[in-house]
């Protein structure tokens, strides 16, 4: 989604009304319940949230000049900076070392990369369509955000084809996007 994303893709930039901010906050907590405790630090009540409307109906939300999350349709998706800040708040999957290179150039993640020895999938099932943070073998921090194309149980069973659609990864357009 952000493979080719530059400043020129931003159409408008507006401050978000406080009532909308409130709605945004509850929505975020609904989606990621573990964020509830940190939301006050993340988005203090008096902070100004800036909304960037971009090409392809992508909306970016920024607090303190840092893009924290964005949405394409309805769902709010955290940016990698946010995931790095609160790693425990998002569902996580792990890929093996061989896959890192391809992910960092924006490829979707194939099932074998998620089921091999160095990879890790959580024991409990994560439903299809969930946004997950992608980690890598031997690394501490997340390197991508993706959307499950199959539930994790299915990935384990089928073990073929695309497992995760990549949305945002390190060093892509959004990562390099800087607010002035």
């Amino acid at each position: 989604m952000f493979k080719k994303f530059t400043k020129d893709d931003v159409h408008t930039q507006t401050n978000v009304k406080s009532s909308v901010q409130r709605a945004l906050r509850t929505k975020l907590v609904n989606q990621y319940p573990k964020l509830e405790e940190s939301i006050k630090i993340l988005m203090p009540k008096k902070s100004t949230v800036v909304l960037y409307k971009c090409e392809d109906k992508i909306n970016l939300y920024a607090v303190n000049d840092e893009v924290l999350f964005y949405q394409k349709f309805d769902e709010l998706i955290p940016s990698l900076k946010l995931i790095h800040m609160y790693p425990s708040c998002f569902p996580r999957v792990q890929v093996d070392r061989g896959a890192i290179k391809f992910i960092l150039s924006g490829a979707n993640i194939m099932c074998p990369g998620l089921t091999s020895k160095g990879a890790k999938l959580p024991d409990e099932d994560i439903a299809k369509g969930t946004t997950v943070a992608v980690y890598a073998e031997g690394k501490e921090n997340a390197l991508a955000v993706g959307k499950l194309l199959m539930s994790t149980d299915e990935i384990k069973k089928v073990n073929k084809g695309m497992g995760i659609e990549l949305i945002h990864y390190l060093a892509d357009g959004l990562w390099n996007f800087e607010i002035e």
Binding site: H84, I100, L104, K139, L170, A171, W175, N176
Partner: peptide, 12 residues
Amino acid sequence: VCTLPVEYCEFG
């Protein structure tokens, strides 16, 4: 230099 978390520099 490359803005990534330092552990990912080797892939940059």
